[in-house]
Write a protein that binds this DNA or RNA. Structure first.
Lengths: 235, 235
DNA sequence: CGTGCAATTGACGCCGGTCAAATGAGGTGG
DNA sequence: CCACCTCATTTGACCGGCGTCAATTGCACG
């Protein structure tokens, strides 16, 4: 089922089988997109939403002086731009990090869902707000945490999110992004990101190489990063 | 009308008079809160939402090492914690910046609104997502902008938002926050914030003193800050 | 085998943080 | 009405984390 991972990560409010089926039926069609291709361009009028079913996607904003801030990293099961339904456009862009598979939901179909089921409305709404909570935690990271802790914190977050869809365990996970992506997500330079990764590796906290994160002692890493997952609303 | 400023700042989707009235009737009661008092505490179960009708409020998170990151500044007409309706708790705290007046909406009343009116649902949902868009723009600010530009950008944002509710014009606005608040919002230290304010003043871009922002040339300020208001969805 | 991009490392510089102290303004109690 | 306290603002001196610049290495791919 296309929406399987999404529903797996959103346990509340509880849905009836009819509601689950209705959500799944709202898919208009599916698409594949190649790595590094732009999926949604900033400020373009939108009429559908994107659910990520396979691969990784990132949301980002380019600045005048050629810098890029990554605003979010999305994993399978994430409703990447559900917020385009009430907003009708996005103020940032979305691109495929890896080769991906996506499912498209016409805004009109979502509106019908919200008309029929307040329960489903609440769940979809909630989903967009958990994304916002993650945005805020990143604000805290970039605002007050040191470079090494920012990276460590992000890794803890990704691990927790990936674990829920069966793509991570306590010892690590595959992370198909570059150090440049990681730098743009944490507000650091690639050079300094590299140095901090080396330090984290030397300290035995984290080993990120060849697109894979290896964690030797998750508790110690979480402790170092001051990671408290309550902002993820994992429930 | 309690919801007057809120409706003034959310023009779409268009509401019928009945919908406006229904929203207004969802207010359970009003309260005053003194400056610096906490209104919502992190992770406490919530059963109602807070609409700010008078004064300023901020959302923030404290870190273990005693630092504070301000996540949002709210002005009259803002639905400060509407996101608590789908989330049932907040992962951050909310406090009164000044003496404030607030109106409280029980979650149950909001649920009834969403059951009755998809239109109203979309508007409320949209409101929470505009807050999220502002969070993301702050992420860009802290992630890639220099100290002076961060401050200038925030001032442009606040001016634009305040103008819409008649509390600012092109020449400036009252801003009842301290330099410490400003520092915590921009991810800077109070000392450096003070230095940057002096520089902005010297450069003739911005004069923030005695709780008032004076702008001599808005276009020049916006240009310096690379301020593009599209993320505010002002319409 | 050349091309291009990611990863890595060293040298150096600067933006913004830290520390410390002075000034000023508002509030409160004697 | 003044003494005193508290907190915001301001400034100077110094420091360090992270950025900048530049070069090298490694790897994938055509």
């Amino acid at each position: 089922m296309t929406t399987e991972l999404f529903l797996m990560t959103h346990q509340r409010p509880r849905l009836t089988d009819a509601e689950r089926k209705a959500l799944n039926n709202a898919v208009a069609h599916k698409r594949r997109v190649a790595a590094r291709q732009v999926i949604v361009r900033e400020n373009m009028p939108l009429t559908q939403c994107t659910l990520l079913t396979k691969g990784f996607v990132h949301r980002y904003k380019d600045t005048e002086d050629g810098r890029r801030q990554i605003l979010a990293l999305h994993i399978p099961g994430d409703f990447v731009d559900l917020h385009s339904y009430p907003l009708k456009r996005l103020e940032h862009s979305v691109a495929a990090t890896t080769d991906v598979e996506i499912a498209l939901f016409p805004h009109q179909a979502i509106r019908e869902l919200t008309t029929v089921s307040p329960n489903l409305t609440e769940l979809l709404w909630r989903s967009t707000l958990i994304d916002a909570a993650i945005n805020r935690e990143w604000l805290v990271s970039i605002g007050v945490r040191t470079a090494a802790k920012r990276i460590a914190h992000l890794m803890c977050e990704l691990r927790a999110r990936l674990e829920r869809i069966g793509m991570a365990d306590r010892n690590g996970f595959d992370l198909p992004i570059t150090q440049i992506d990681l730098a743009d997500a944490t507000g650091l330079t690639p050079v300094h990101t590299n140095r901090m990764l080396r330090q984290l590796r030397t300290d035995g906290l984290l080993d990120f190489r060849d697109r894979r994160v290896i964690i030797h002692d998750l508790d110690r890493l979480a402790d170092f990063a001051e990671f408290d997952p309550s902002y993820l609303f994992l429930d």
